[in-house]
Design a protein around this nucleic acid. Structure first.
Lengths: 236, 236
DNA sequence: TGATCTTTTGTACGATAGTACAAATCGCAT
DNA sequence: ATGCGATTTGTACTATCGTACAAAAGATCA
């Protein structure tokens, strides 16, 4: 019976600290921060309430640690994918690759944390909706750089669209992304079972396709008083 | 000193019940349901905690009443605007009008409730993120009809796009809409002050423009293995 | 005006929250 | 095996939660 080779020489049971983190992630992402008690988390993790205090000191500390361990890997992955996307020659393909570089890591794991990508993104969505203070600080510090990098890159591919519009549209992208992870069942319901809102692959493809089109919409500021955009085809 | 002509013969102070509702809306929409105590609400409304119990029995009952008084007017307004939009002849204009009919009532007041539109929409966003049970039931009952009406109408204007894609894209629209109301400051921050995320008019225009383009994106299912979409212009 | 109903107030109660802390337990190097 | 540091357990404390309820106060109308 081999014990898993714990990297650190400190670990009694399989990995209680990890179990608490995962349980907390899931519960926070599903019910919000305040609706979940430390006791709930402990029970879900098969731990003792006091154990949570031992590892993370406070409930805020636990949330902080959840962010800490995810932000790095996810942003790293995004940077890699963005760098690769920037090298794509074709302008249309490049834009799509960049959007995908932004979207994909939010759905899939950003590191060895099994399946943690979607769960963590859902958590971010909920925390941002609740106006959580701990989350707000971390997000402004950690994610704004990445967001700016994407906005700049996309702007380079769409020079005729003002940066302001790019910002708005990337904001919409994040909102759509969050909402897809928060209430996937709504998609299933409204499509009357024809689509599965929980299917990450579908969500990514749909989101990328729609967002690329949104980014390519004509500029708003400098727009002429009357519409002048070529419609895609409008009827068959 | 004229007393305001209360429609109902029951009302002691200006309108305590209303004050509690407004305070609760604002607090719930900002901090989430569980983070706000009945005492917080009472204090913000200048009322006594017991008064909340008297008018709404429970905290859930208070939330329920908030939904009740907003859902009707907002959906009515949406139906009116959708009906008007359907009468627009030009296909492109009609699509835009329909999207606007969906978006506008969420930002502006749906009735005589002063400025309540945006506040209520923000509330819905937060409740949906928190997975609130009371909200979930009401939404499925009250909003799905409206959502279906819009999806069907938009599908009629975009027959070459599968209904499934329309559902996804309208889902993205709602997510973007929610997020715009939840964290408007992010837009201001990322645009380095060039845009004001709190400006409803800007948000609506940006959202409508981006969403119309997203809806017009080529279909996903029946798509050919290689891309074949006419790019809008891609460079000046 | 005085009776009656509605609304507001004040207070209290049981439940549960986050957290602290001492005791018990475990893994491991020696 | 044994001692030691790391972890887990159990429990307790204080604060705050939602809610109930009786009393006070205001409004309404004969």
């Amino acid at each position: 019976m081999i014990r898993n080779p714990a990297s650190k020489p400190t670990a009694r049971k399989p990995n209680m600290r990890e179990a608490i983190l995962v349980a907390a992630e899931e519960l926070f992402a599903t019910n919000g921060f305040n609706a979940v008690s430390v006791r709930d988390i402990a029970q879900a993790a098969g731990a003792n309430p006091g154990s949570v205090t031992y590892h993370f000191k406070t409930k805020d500390g636990l949330l902080l640690e959840i962010y800490r361990r995810h932000c790095g890997p996810m942003n790293l992955r995004r940077s890699e994918l963005l760098a690769a996307a920037k090298r794509v020659r074709d302008l249309q393909d490049r834009l799509e690759a960049m959007v995908r570089a932004y979207v994909a890591p939010a759905f899939t794991s950003g590191s060895d944390l099994a399946g943690g990508g979607a769960r963590f993104t859902r958590l971010r969505a909920v925390m941002s909706a609740e106006g959580n203070e701990v989350a707000r600080k971390i997000i402004a510090q950690t994610f704004d750089d990445t967001s700016h990098a994407f906005i700049d890159a996309i702007h380079d591919s769409l020079p005729h669209v003002p940066r302001t519009d790019i910002v708005w549209r990337s904001h919409f992208l994040l909102g759509a992304l969050y909402y897809s992870l928060v209430t996937p069942d709504r998609v299933s319901r409204l499509s009357r079972g024809e689509a599965d809102g929980s299917d990450a692959a579908s969500a990514i493809e749909q989101l990328v396709q729609a967002t690329v089109a949104a980014f390519q919409a004509p500029a708003l500021d400098q727009a002429a008083p009357t519409r002048r955009r070529p419609v895609v085809s409008s009827k068959t």
